[in-house]
Design a binder for these strands. Structure first.
Length: 465
RNA sequence: GUCUCCUUCGUCUAGGGGUCUAGGACACCGCCCUUUCACGGCGGCAACACGGGUUCAAAUCCCGUAGGAGAUGCCA
């Protein structure tokens, strides 16, 4: 089977995460079948389309490594072709000029709604095939009887009475093509064999099939993918915290996690949850996509993200994390080296790159603020323990994690306290909070003088209170 | 309003007439591990929207009802 699919975003805003999933499914379908994945920028809405939006769409596709074949097609460059097709349809009697004004139609529509009737176009200009002097649109002469059947790859057999369809506008009065026309013409000219898109287009498809038929073109296969909703069941939007791919990028998610999460949203392969790119390409099948809409679950995304962070090697995860480090100056090689040494523990307890960057700060500088909970480990007793601890560190000729742990255990037993009392106090002093990797690992990495400095500063801070 | 579609644990889903006292994952709860928080291990809670059919047998097929979504633009 020869396969040509396309992803056709409009650069009128940021890329919605649902569109990213549509792109992903198209890419997987193409790669699975050894076909082509084309890209088309639908910028015919000149007012709202921007080059910046187009650029950021490409950036997201690159980020997710959804590589496309050939150069992207820019829809606005094809307007002459769209006009040509519309005019040809008039010549062949499949379309006609309509001079009804938008105002006139609005009045009719309102009256029809009031009367509780269907408010489709009434066909007033149907016999007008000669071009009137001005302000005419071109409408398709739609079928008025029979049934249009769509054997959708996802939704299966869907049909509608042609009487429901109306004479849609193909070319506007300013001679620009409508979406309905341009999408059909472009898909045909690009040789698209399978149209995989959001199911908000499902009912549009019946109209588009009519255009294909009027043109005498082969009709591609369609697959309508359910939309993604927010946790409350309404369409996912900014209101839910994050809706665009850029949002998730900024929240510190790895492309691998987004890829895996989006793939499993509405599609499955038995009990597989962690699915690699190559497995996805091998297993993906459009007919396996579910028909019902899915809700976006941030917790599951976080879980996957944590998994992929753990899997990634330390150097690579450091590169991913560094944009999230909010440091005034760029970090030194020695700081970078410390973070790398502690990375295994750091990444194992982070869910996002933002978390990771936050926790990595312990290797950049002494804590600037201390969580309130730290004061629980800053009693006179604790400060005294910390002083003893400083003495041990000073005297130690070996700061290895295991030996410091042993030395501290001895101190605990000498002072008749539990190890946790000392460890937590030290943690507070070193990190400013009570959750971190092993304090003894941190000590080994930051070294003797930094450890002593941080603990002394902690003692000083809390003794004066 | 009209048309089209959707409906299995809180969420994502497996399931395609008997193997379902409905499986997995996330979340949640408990236990273990443990210097904290996590990780990890073990265990637990939790669903076939409702009502009718068809059938020896229905989560699976059919019809209604309810709820939800989309379309109904000279937007895409």
């Amino acid at each position: 089977m020869s396969v040509v699919v396309r992803f056709a975003p409009s650069p009128t805003g940021v890329l919605h995460i649902g569109s990213v999933r549509t792109a992903l499914f198209n890419w997987l379908f193409a790669r699975h079948h050894g076909g082509k994945f084309l890209l088309r920028i639908e910028d015919t809405d000149r007012l709202r389309s921007t080059a910046e939006n187009a650029r950021s769409i490409l950036e997201i596709l690159n980020w997710l490594e959804l590589d496309w074949d050939g150069e992207p097609v820019v829809q606005s460059s094809r307007i002459e072709r769209h006009k040509e097709v519309a005019n040809e349809l008039v010549r062949s009697g499949k379309a006609f000029y309509c001079t009804c004004s938008p105002e006139e139609l609005a009045v009719k529509k309102e009256a029809a709604i009031k009367a509780g009737k269907s408010h489709k176009y009434d066909g007033k200009c149907r016999e007008q095939v000669v071009r009137p002097f001005e302000n005419a649109v071109i409408r398709l002469r739609a079928e008025t009887c029979g049934v249009t059947i769509l054997d959708d790859l996802v939704q299966e057999r869907v049909s509608t009475e042609n009487a429901q369809l109306d004479d849609l506008v193909l070319l506007r009065s300013d001679e620009t093509p409508t979406y309905m026309l341009s999408v059909v013409v472009d898909d045909h000219d690009m040789g698209v064999t399978h149209v995989l898109r959001g199911d908000d287009h499902l009912t549009n498809t019946f109209r588009q099939i009519q255009i294909y038929k009027a043109c005498g073109w082969d009709i591609p296969q369609f697959g309508h993918i359910p939309l993604i909703y927010g946790p409350d069941g309404a369409k996912l939007s900014k209101r839910h915290g994050a809706a665009s791919a850029q949002d998730y990028m900024q929240l510190g998610y790895l492309p691998e996690a987004i890829f895996n999460y989006l793939l499993r949203l509405g599609w499955s392969h038995g009990d597989s949850e962690i699915i690699s790119r190559s497995e996805a390409v091998e297993w993906f099948d459009i007919t396996g996509v579910g028909k019902s809409p899915a809700r976006f679950d941030m917790a599951k995304l976080q879980n996957l993200n944590a998994h992929y962070m753990k899997m990634k090697d330390d150097q690579a995860i450091f590169e991913c994390m560094s944009p999230f480090l909010e440091t005034e100056e760029s970090i030194t090689d020695s700081q970078k080296n410390d973070i790398l040494r502690g990375m295994k523990s750091l990444k194992g307890r982070s869910r996002t790159l933002v978390d990771l960057a936050e926790s990595a700060k312990i290797y950049i500088s002494a804590p600037k603020v201390f969580d309130d909970a730290c004061s629980k480990y800053a009693t006179n007793e604790h400060l005294s323990l910390l002083q003893d601890f400083v003495n041990i560190v000073e005297a130690a000729d070996n700061l290895q994690e295991s030996s410091m742990l042993e030395a501290t255990k001895i101190l605990a037993s000498e002072r008749s306290v539990k190890l946790v009392e000392i460890a937590q106090a030290v943690r507070g002093a070193l990190c400013g909070k009570l959750a971190s990797p092993s304090v003894f690992e941190i000590i080994e990495i930051i070294g003797k003088s930094e450890t002593i400095a941080r603990v002394r500063s902690f003692i000083k801070k809390y003794s004066t209170i």
